[in-house]
Design a protein around this nucleic acid. Structure first.
Lengths: 139, 139
DNA sequence: ATATATTTGCAACATTGTTTCATTTGAAAA
DNA sequence: TTTTCAAATGAAACAATGTTGCAAATATAT
């Protein structure tokens, strides 16, 4: 699905900045950092607008933010098939962070389980970050 | 165990800043933010030294850092019994973040499972953050 | 008590994220 | 097509967060 249609589907305005972010993420097989997206956006990148668009795109469920560490953040495009799940703001899968090449991979196969919580606690969403060595780095 | 002994056990120097951080965390039942620790440290707080000590204390396994979001970080004291596990830098339990009162709770009972990863991926450590409403906020 | 490696605290800087507000623009209606 | 208006942009200014170099101070072992 192209960027224009994705925006239309979520009822938010089609703007240069948003299209550029979505296109950048579509060009990649894995989630990207702000700087990586910035490189791909070329002249259409503006830092303030970027933050605001990331906010909006996350809020409507077009992308998701992966916080590996406070100084290590990635943004990933949601699959169109899972749009409805995401618009309910629930993570569906775990993320993998490779400590060697610093890439982040969406592990679509590794689903978020229901955790058994102590009495009184109610879960709305969970983040799972698995750290280690990715397939490419395991020679 | 008191702060002095904890430092000695891990073979790092006993300094005012480190003792103050450990004491602050021992006064609390749950992990604290930098500002919360700062309040408890009083005049012995220095921002740069704080960051460096957090680094050191984390590296030797006295405390652990919980990154709920890039702008929402907590530091928790490790239990002495689990010191050996922690010095191997492996998380043992999941963390809960209450979206209402913004507190973080160590869910000692909720152990980190072994995730079934795709071919080629090797896990060294995992972070699990469960978000929702804590017992206190569920009236 | 002394020696020495570690730690501290300051200055200065770099990065990251937010708010306000005037201007521009997308998209719907006339 | 032109008009209209809420939404989005981008600049300035700020706030918070995190890092590095370096001289002075200090914890521990001898």
């Amino acid at each position: 699905m192209n960027a224009t249609d994705i925006l239309k589907l979520h009822n938010i305005k089609k703007t240069a900045g948003r299209l550029a972010i979505i296109n950048a993420l579509q060009e990649s097989t894995c989630p990207l950092s702000e700087n990586e997206i910035k490189e791909l956006m070329l002249e259409s990148y503006d830092r303030i607008t970027f933050y605001r668009n990331i906010q909006t795109l996350t809020a409507v469920g077009i992308i998701h933010k992966i916080v590996v560490d406070n100084t290590l953040i990635r943004y990933g495009l949601n699959c169109c098939e899972t749009v409805h799940e995401h618009s309910a703001h629930r993570n569906t899968h775990a993320h993998f962070y490779c400590e060697q090449c610093h890439s982040v991979v969406c592990l679509q196969e590794v689903k978020i389980p229901e955790f058994c919580l102590p009495e009184g606690f109610i879960s709305a969403d969970s983040d799972i970050i698995i750290k280690g060595k990715c397939e490419k780095c395991n020679h």
